[in-house]
Design a protein around this nucleic acid. Structure first.
Length: 506
RNA sequence: CGGGGUGUGGCGCAGUUGGUAGCGCACCUGGUUUGGGACCAGGGGGUCGCUGGUUCGAGUCCAGUCACCCCGACCA
């Protein structure tokens, strides 16, 4: 077994030089390079909007498939609501409009015409919309306007609907996957007869997200609730899962909101109870977005490129044939095809790259950049010994495996890698989650150490704001299982009943 | 919206005191190669972001304008 990562610098010198910026040198640049070089996405002609390329989209499709399965397993169905929302809908829920007004794209006209000077097309001023349309930044308003018509009786409840959609939030500054003007997501919107049911739903879906992130994406998360100032615009309570990235910054990976009766009241959605009274329904909404791809990258990847957990990889194994002449290729190809079939029968997704237009070394680097979990190289020397060379992406270890043992060995490695990626990320998160008790130590921790900082907070928005202004750290969440612990606010010195999680965030 | 930067073949860049555009990668053809991003030979491709000005002559100087990137404030 050869361990390249023990002599990483030498390895890189002759191998990956000039491909990716080193993580240690410039983490943000490393991230950008990786997204581009791994062929996940690129910037488009429209500022802040990205093209998700086939390889990146394949990862999103894997996520969608699993999440969709989980949503359906918990009783939800999919539907689709319009992209355009009448402007008037937005003003119906005060907090909601307040939260989103500053980043809405607005459709004002519905027609173009040829420019009179013969230069291209211009907006036809005669085609002004009576009521302007908002491009959805989220769908609560249009959905609740619709739910009013769907809900009359307790027998219509609970209403458990999800939609897969794109949304637009006109952000000042954007970054591929992490924050773009348009992004893809799913948004669940549910209606319930009681507050208790709605809270249970919000908590259930937070659990679904946590399970998905941890078991599927191998990303450990904290489960918690947001402070008032970080709460979703229009929610009574916002639950969240927060993950810690390799650079010590937190990333909100998913949110689930208990909306109380806010939207029901704003859109007049009432139902007849068994007892014959009329009551407003109780609501939730919850979502995760293509931002998760950013979380994926920043949790597992390294200086050689993307590292994908096997459950998410568009293909789990790539086979690279090695040969000199046509006769050699014939033999290698025959065996490679057999291996491909065997692995596929074992339920493993396999890509066999027999292109003659790239050399093996080029392919090795390419698939490392793309994070394919297992690479199998097979050449004439292997044929003689009835073996292949197997390389594992996360550790960069290479080993020789007998062809007969292949499917089982690969399955073991994939399983092991899935677990190992999670364990590694969990260990990193644990080592970077720590308590701080004084203001000096807090400032130092935010500035020099990063990570999840557990500190006492007096519970006021004022203190939270001052801490944010002074340190750039925000309250990521109040952990659901945070133990009661008397203490003094790290900033104000006022009494606090438990610690909350502070971090710098994406 | 403030600060900084950049616009030159597909990508990354060079271009001196103004003289009519070049390099690397990629691409195409042929050959040799193929176990960690091969090599040789030949070839194609750019009205230099846009508009105007100065000049015999502008990638280069001037003015304006647009776009994008990075750093802040705002946000998933």
């Amino acid at each position: 077994m050869r361990l390249f990562n023990k002599s990483q610098t030498l390895y890189q010198r002759y191998n990956m030089a000039n491909v990716l910026t080193s993580k240690d040198k410039d983490y943000a640049q490393w991230y950008n390079d990786l997204v581009i070089k791994a062929d996940l996405a690129e910037n488009s002609a429209v500022r802040g909007s990205m093209v998700i390329k086939p390889y990146g989209y394949a990862i999103w499709e894997k996520m969608q498939a699993e999440l969709d399965r989980m949503f359906k397993e918990t009783g939800h169905v999919n539907a689709y609501f319009p992209l355009f929302i009448p402007k008037s809908f937005f003003s119906k829920e005060a907090a909601h409009v307040e939260g989103f007004a500053k980043e809405c794209a607005v459709v004002t006209h519905y027609r173009l015409k040829n420019d009179e000077n013969g230069k291209g097309v211009v907006v036809d001023p005669d085609a002004k919309l009576e009521e302007e349309l908002i491009v959805r930044p989220t769908s609560e308003t249009i959905i609740w306007d619709t739910y009013r018509k769907w809900i009359q009786s307790y027998r219509d409840l609970p209403l458990l609907i999800n939609q897969w959609a794109n949304v637009v939030r006109w952000e000042m500054r954007t970054r591929l996957f992490l924050r773009t003007a348009e992004f893809l997501w799913q948004e669940g919107h549910t209606a319930h007869a009681t507050s208790k049911e709605a809270i249970e739903e919000a908590e259930r879906m937070l659990g679904v997200y946590a399970e998905f992130l941890e078991n599927f994406m191998a990303i450990p998360v904290l489960r918690g609730v947001k402070s008032e100032s970080e709460r979703f615009a229009g929610a009574v309570e916002t639950y969240c899962v927060e993950a810690l990235m390799q650079d010590g910054k937190a990333l909100q990976a998913g949110t689930s909101h208990y909306l109380g009766q806010n939207f029901a009241k704003a859109f007049d959605v009432k139902f007849a109870t068994k007892e014959g009274t009329n009551e407003f329904v109780w609501a939730t909404s919850w979502g995760v977005s293509t931002r998760l791809i950013g979380a994926l990258i920043m949790t597992h990847s390294d200086n050689n490129g993307l590292v994908l957990p096997p459950k998410l990889a568009p293909y789990q194994v790539v086979i690279v044939p090695i040969y000199r002449k046509d006769e050699e290729f014939e033999k290698v190809n025959a065996t490679a095809l057999e291996i491909q079939t065997t692995l596929r029968k074992a339920g493993i997704s396999v890509h066999y790259d027999h292109r003659d237009t790239y050399k093996p070394g080029w392919k090795f680097n390419e698939y490392e950049l793309k994070g394919v979990p297992v690479r199998i190289a097979i050449g004439p020397r292997d044929l003689e010994k009835n073996q292949v060379e197997m390389a594992r992406r996360d550790t960069l270890e290479k080993s020789f495996v007998g062809i007969d043992a292949l499917p089982n060995t690969v399955l073991e490695v994939l399983e092991n890698m899935q677990k190992s990626l999670f364990d590694k990320a969990l260990e990193r998160t644990r080592q970077n989650t720590y308590s701080v008790d004084t203001w000096e130590a807090f400032q130092d921790a935010v500035k020099n150490r990063g990570g999840f900082i557990k500190a006492h907070w007096d519970g006021t928005a004022e203190t939270e704001k001052i801490i944010k202004d002074k340190t750039k750290a925000t309250i990521r969440c109040i952990e659901l299982d945070a133990p009661d612990e008397e203490g003094l606010c790290v900033f104000s010195g006022k009494p606090s009943k438990r610690r909350v999680i502070f971090a710098k965030a994406y």
